[in-house]
Design a protein around this nucleic acid. Structure first.
Lengths: 211, 211
DNA sequence: TCAAAAGTGTTCTATCTACACCCATGT
DNA sequence: ACATGGGTGTAGATAGAACACTTTTGA
């Protein structure tokens, strides 16, 4: 039996145009060459799996120091040989991302609610990642990964709504967020248009916190 | 770089003497030969990882058709070579288990709150598994894995208390369980001693259900 | 002065928590 | 008759859901 191939793959999420999107690349190798797929690569054992996933993330987005979490491990996604794929998901702030663009088939963002058919079982991997993010949104501060240092309550609420796929009540949302202790006002205001300025908030911690 | 070794390891839980216990074996190979460790073995790619973990579980307990879930994947637990360990946890009913006992160093159950120092980072793996089980107890029916087909409310409550590590109120526990719809009375009674017989209940489903 | 988004409280409902007495059985 | 565990209800507290008007700004 040939020794198994170990690969890491990364589901990279960002908020783009008010919706939750995933970064996809074109496969450069057979099988399924040219098809949309999740970024990933073979693991050679020279670093931990998490470091390898983080490395991949930097390669694709240019941004480091982000939210990165292991999702699960699948075997024989690629049926041509014994293989193990360790999936991670990451949350990135759009403004910090610079995509590679010089290639023939550049990476691109895709809305999670309108994905093309992907190589291997990558659609299922993304679905699992979305489920995980949705669940953790309710009892952790993981949304900090998608938002800038300072943000308005509306930005935060839009992020929550995009992930949960439903509208939330503004007053209840504000109360819930502030009383959770996950965010705090900075005292600064954002003047942005012909309307009352919005207060800016920050996450009290930018490390994972559970409620 | 030598190709990575892929292994599966399994945290097998059962309720023994009213407490949550884990099955440990002695390592038969170097490194750390002779030390207590989690059951596991090399994965050769001839089946899925989940099947391999299930196979290991049957080897150790003689019981199949149990609760089995992937926990997470660690890299380089064994620092001597590139390696990936895919950890699973399983819940088994004590009565269905027959341990291997013919060996020099037979497997044995250990209370999760009084574990010896284990090989590699197996103590951390178990701690993660306990955390996961505790969390899922609150919003799934996973306790069915630890209990027989029919059981009394007291048995169920003892199981919950052992996992959560705290005492629960009997009346509130009963109301919560029955109104959850996860369990239903069978109409049968258990006569067991000098006291009023207890009603027997069953899980309405023995497949994973989320609340 | 108008348009656009920000900010703010109260009521109702459902859920969780605390808590004590009677019941059925075996010895 | 007594010891042992099984079975039951209520009141108070807490958390979540529904809901509409006033404020501040730029044009």
């Amino acid at each position: 039996m040939t020794p198994p191939v170990v690969a890491t793959i990364v589901v990279i999420f960002a908020m783009i145009d008010g919706s939750l999107q995933v970064l996809l690349v074109h496969r450069s190798a057979e099988p399924e060459r040219g098809r949309w797929a999740l970024p990933g690569g073979r693991w050679d054992g020279s670093m931990t799996l998490e470091e390898a996933a983080g490395r991949k993330l930097v390669e694709e987005t240019g941004a480091s120091d982000l939210y990165l979490e292991q999702l699960f491990t699948a075997s024989n996604l690629d049926a041509t040989q014994p293989s193990v794929a360790v999936a991670y998901f990451a949350l990135v702030e759009q403004r910090r991302v610079r995509l590679r663009s010089s290639e023939e088939w550049p990476p691109a963002w895709h809305r999670v609610d309108a994905l093309p058919a992907l190589a291997f079982r990558n659609n299922e991997v993304i679905a699992q990642a979305v489920t995980r993010v949705r669940a953790k949104l309710e009892y952790t501060n993981l949304a900090y990964g998608l938002l800038p240092e300072r943000f308005t309550l509306r930005q935060l609420q839009t992020t929550y709504e995009a992930i949960l796929g439903e509208r939330l009540d503004r007053r209840n949302f504000r109360k819930r967020m502030l009383s959770s202790g996950l965010i705090a006002p900075t005292g600064e205001l954002e003047r942005a248009g012909a309307h009352r300025p919005a207060s800016l908030y920050r996450f009290t911690s930018r490390e994972p916190v559970f409620l």
